[in-house]
Design a protein around this nucleic acid. Sequence first.
RNA 1: GGCCCCGUCGUCUAGUGGCCUAGGACUCUGGCUUCUCAAGCCAGCUACGCGGGUUCGAAUCCCGUCGGGGCUACCA
Length: 487
Amino acid sequence: MNSENKAVRVRFAPSPTGDLHVGNIRTALFDWAYARHTGGAFIFRIEDTDRERVTDEYIKAAQDTLKWLGLDWDEGPEVGGPYGPYLQSQRMRIYDDWASKFLEQGDAYHCYCSSEELEARREAQKAANIAPGYDGKCRSVSESDLARYKSENRLPVLRMRMPEGSTTFKDLIRGDVTFDHNFVPDFVLVRGDGSPLYTLAVAVDDIMMRITHVLRGEDLLSSTPRQIRVYQAMGVAESDYPAFAHLPFVMGQDNAKLSKRNGEVSIAWYRERGFLPEAICNYLALLGWAPGDDRENVTMKELTELFTVERVHSSPARFDMKKLEAINGDKIRELKIDEFLERVTPFLINDGIISGSSGELAIVKMALPIIQERIVNLAEVSQMLKFLFVAKFEVEADSLPKIMDEQSQVVLRASIQALETLSSWDHGSIHSVLRTALIEELALKPRIAFGAVRIAVTGSHISPPLFESMELLGRDRSLARIKKAIS
RNA sequence: GGCCCCGUCGUCUAGUGGCCUAGGACUCUGGCUUCUCAAGCCAGCUACGCGGGUUCGAAUCCCGUCGGGGCUACCA
C-alpha cells in the first residue's frame, strides 16, 4: 500500500477558515520540503466545501502567505496543472458523480434521520455507555417509512456503509495503526442539500490527483479509515492508496492548542511584526523534526536536502516565541546590507519614519550596520532610527530628567566646546575628542559622560552606538540638540 | 465514557542495548567585554513520568500504571 516507484506527489490542502496559522504552515512546510527532497511535485489544493466558513479573501491570503514564505507549488491555484481544478468548490460535478456511483453500488445509502433524532440517539448511547455513533438505522428503510419521510419533505444525506471488520494502515511516522469498524460509524458523504463533505472530497481528490503521500495534522488520524473506505468504494487498488504520515501538533505554551492567549497563531501577524520568512520556516522546521546533527540554523536549501519523514517526531511540540525570536535575530544578522535595506524599508515607510526618498534610503543604509546586531525583528528598526529623521526633535520623557542634573549639564557644555573645534566630523574623531574632554579632563566614567550626550542627541538612553549616530546625524543637528539640552 | 495517538532539561531536541557520570539549542542565572542597548565569549542551573520485568548491562526492548492530547458533526 505504498508507492515506492512512483514519482512523489504531496499535497497541502488547507481549509482556509481564517488566516493560515502556525500549525497549517508547519504542515505546508513539511509537505513542501518532502516534495522538494524527493524531486516530486508539491500540490496546493483548497478545501472549500464548507463555503459558510471559507471565504475568497482567506483563500487569497493563504496563497499570499505561502508565496511569502517561499513555499512554491507546482500545481494549484494560479499555476493550474493537469489534475485541476484545485479548488474543491469547482469540483462539485466530480463529487456528485462518485456519490451517485457509491449509491448505485450499494456502498452508500440515503439516510433520513433528522439532526434531532440523531442527537437524541447519541445521548441514549452515551447514557447506556455504548460507543456513540450512527446506529445504521437507515441502512434499510421500509416502504412506509420512506413514504412518510418524503411526505415530511425530509432531505436525505448520503451515508457510507462501513463493513464489519477493521482497517489497518501504515503511518510513516507512527507505524501500523488499526481501527475497529465498531468505532467507525457510517459517515456522511453528502449533505441534505446535495453538497459534498470533506470526507468525500479529500478521498476523491487525493486519488484523482494521484497523490502519493498525505502528510497532514494528527487531528486527521482517526478519519483515515473513512478515507480508505472511500478508496475502496472507488475501486482503487490498495497499491495505489497514498501513504499516510500524521504530523504531531504544534501547541501553545500551556500544553493547550496554540491560540492568541498563549502565542500568536496567524502567520500574517508575524509578518507584520518583522519576522523573516526564512526564520519562521527555520524555526517551524525544528518543531517536530530535527536534521539529526546539532545544527539549528537551517536554510531552505538544507531543509530540502535533509528532510525525511522518518525523522519527524511522533510527539507534539510546544511553540516557543523566544526561540523564534532568537532565530529571527540570527537571520537578520546574516542579511547583506542591501537585502536588509530592502526588507526594512516598508516598515520605516509604514511607520511614517521616512517617505522613501533616495536621500533617506542612503542614510538608512549607512545606519543599518550599526543596528543590525541590536534587533530581533524588522519592526524595531523604526524605533532605532527615528532620531535620524524626526522633524521636531524631543527628548523622551523618561530620559529627560537624567540630563537635567548639574553634572550632566557640565558634560553637555564641555561636549559642545570640544565638538565645535572638531574639523572632521567622523565617529572616530568625535569619539576621541569627547573622550579627551569628558573622560580625561573631567575624569568621568564613560557610561556617565557618554550617557548624557546620548540622551541629548538621540533622545533616549538606549540608542545605536553614540559616535556613529552623531556622525550620521551630522554636525549641525548634533550640536543643536546638545545646546537645546542645556537649560 | 469509548477508540486512537503521545511521554528525555522550563521549551525545542540528540539518543534505535554498552561511546550517557545523557550531548546541542533557546530561555533563565552569574561573569567577561563594553559609550547605552544588543551582539560575542565563558560558566552554572535543570531531564530519561512512575512501577515491574528481560539482560552481564536499558533513556533505548516487554508489561502495567499514571499523565497529556485528538476523535467521537449534515467542521475540517
